[in-house]
Deep mutational scan, measured.
Amino acid sequence: MAAGGDHGSPDSYRSPLASRYASPEMCFVFSDRYKFRTWRQLWLWLAEAEQTLGLPITDEQIQEMKSNLENIDFKMAAEEEKRLRHDVMAHVHTFGHCCPKAAGIIHLGATSCYVGDNTDLIILRNALDLLLPKLARVISRLADFAKERASLPTLGFTHFQPAQLTTVGKRCCLWIQDLCMDLQNLKRVRDDLRFRGVKGTTGTQASFLQLFEGDDHKVEQLDKMVTEKAGFKRAFIITGQTYTRKVDIEVLSVLASLGASVHKICTDIRLLANLKEMEEPFEKQQIGSSAMPYKRNPMRSERCCSLARHLMTLVMDPLQTASVQWFERTLDDSANRRICLAEAFLTADTILNTLQNISEGLVVYPKVIERRIRQELPFMATENIIMAMVKAGGSRQDCHEKIRVLSQQAASVVKQEGGDNDLIERIQVDAYFSPIHSQLDHLLDPSSFTGRASQQVQRFLEEEVYPLLKPYESVMKVKAELCL
């Protein structure tokens, strides 16, 4: 049975990233139509530049190519590739079939990587351009969430054990800070992308030097003109047959890092959902379990974690691919890159769409948070109580021993009897502590235990987050809708 299948058929496997999760716009960027249309555009740009620099290419040939950029006979191309065992030459023939007058000058002087690699770089750039505003929107939604809850005390956790208090907004800023680093890295790697350009079979530009009869300047002009037509500021000066596969490492490393950030955020949300302090959106008709109707599973956060793990592992592909590119190139890269580049971007696209949807509907339960604080705060307040007693004339050592005994009794009630923490009640009825009984409410005010959390939130948002989001103001209103 021949390899390949009808990918629109229910009898043929289709990647869930495309069929179930990723956005239509990201799927289109990695589609065959987008790819092969870009090949034709690159052939047109090459012909236009070659004509401008004096090669015998007519206006009629150029116009014929322009008129057929979208006229792609995919069936013919597939048949040609089956016959020739070469995808680029299959599309040269297919393009030439609908451009008979231009057929002889299509791909003039070029090698397969002229269309293959340059198209990949265009796709990487455009895919990054799709991700950047999506990530900015996630940051914006979380920034709104953090600002609104900047002063809401909550129990902090280290080692997932109760620690000092923080605020809900401050905790959210930990998430935002990681995503801001990801946004900066995505922008950097996007701006650092260079075009492969017009380089020939081993990167020496020998074929173009021959076409222009040894004119170095025209060869350099050709490279520059096509690079500018493709919208790049610069091209690699040095290439082998391909652009260095280190570029793929750079791009997928940034995406993998984004995956790590999203995994951490969504894990926190899942843990908070278990504590009943916070939940992701839950639709009115949504079913959490087929057997347990009360369940409210954090399905979206779980999906993000599941896909983020996949995204983090994909960076190993370009690392290994770059390491086995012998001399000017081997074909070890080809099949692998067809999979890992598309999957990385479709996965990143999915987790950003999902995280935006989550961040637009996060639900906080202040009463649950308050109750958990009441359970733990008495123990945390013991040092403040000791200091207040010393100020009232008591002995630190005597007070410490009193607190120690009462704390152990209260802990026994919590752990052995399943009761509430009654340390404060014990202190309130103990005559030894009568000098500070009137101060206990103040000493137990949760806001006095959150330090500068709310001020940190305000400063972080104003100095770091809002300036970073400013270039994306025009796209901030787009909502994230999930079908599944």
Rank of each mutant, 00 (worst) to 15 (best):
A3M: 15
G4K: 15
H7M: 15
H7Y: 13
R14G: 15
L17Q: 11
S19L: 06
Y21T: 00
A22K: 08
P24C: 09
C27V: 15
D32Y: 09
F36K: 11
Q41I: 10
W43V: 00
L44V: 13
L44H: 07
L53W: 01
I57S: 02
T58Q: 13
E60F: 08
E60A: 10
I62K: 06
I62F: 05
Q63L: 12
K66T: 12
N68H: 10
I72W: 14
E80P: 02
E81P: 02
K82V: 15
M89L: 01
M89C: 06
A90C: 14
G96K: 01
H97D: 14
H97G: 08
C98A: 10
C99L: 10
H107S: 01
T111S: 10
I123Y: 01
R125D: 06
L132E: 11
K147G: 10
S151Q: 11
L155T: 00
L155P: 02
H159T: 00
Q161L: 01
P162S: 09
P162K: 00
Q164S: 10
K170D: 01
L174E: 08
K187V: 09
D192R: 08
D192P: 00
L193T: 09
R194T: 06
G197A: 14
F208Y: 07
K218E: 05
V219A: 06
E220P: 03
E228D: 10
A230T: 04
F232D: 00
F236T: 05
F236M: 09
I237N: 10
I237S: 09
Q241C: 03
Y243N: 09
L252I: 13
S253W: 07
L255Y: 02
I265D: 00
T267V: 08
A273V: 05
K276F: 09
S290G: 02
S290V: 02
R296S: 07
P298V: 03
M299E: 00
M299T: 08
M299Y: 09
L307R: 01
A308T: 11
M312R: 05
T313R: 04
P318K: 04
F327K: 06
D332T: 05
D332R: 00
A335P: 06
R337W: 03
N353T: 05
T354M: 15
L355K: 00
N357E: 05
E360Q: 15
G361E: 15
V364Q: 04
P366C: 08
K367L: 05
V368G: 05
E383D: 03
I385Y: 12
M389V: 07
M389E: 05
G394T: 05
I403P: 04
R404C: 11
V405G: 13
V405C: 13
Q409A: 13
A411N: 11
E417N: 12
E417Y: 09
I424V: 15
R426G: 04
I427F: 10
P435N: 09
I436K: 04
I436G: 05
Q439P: 05
V457Y: 00
L461D: 02
P467T: 11
P471H: 15
V475N: 15
V478C: 15
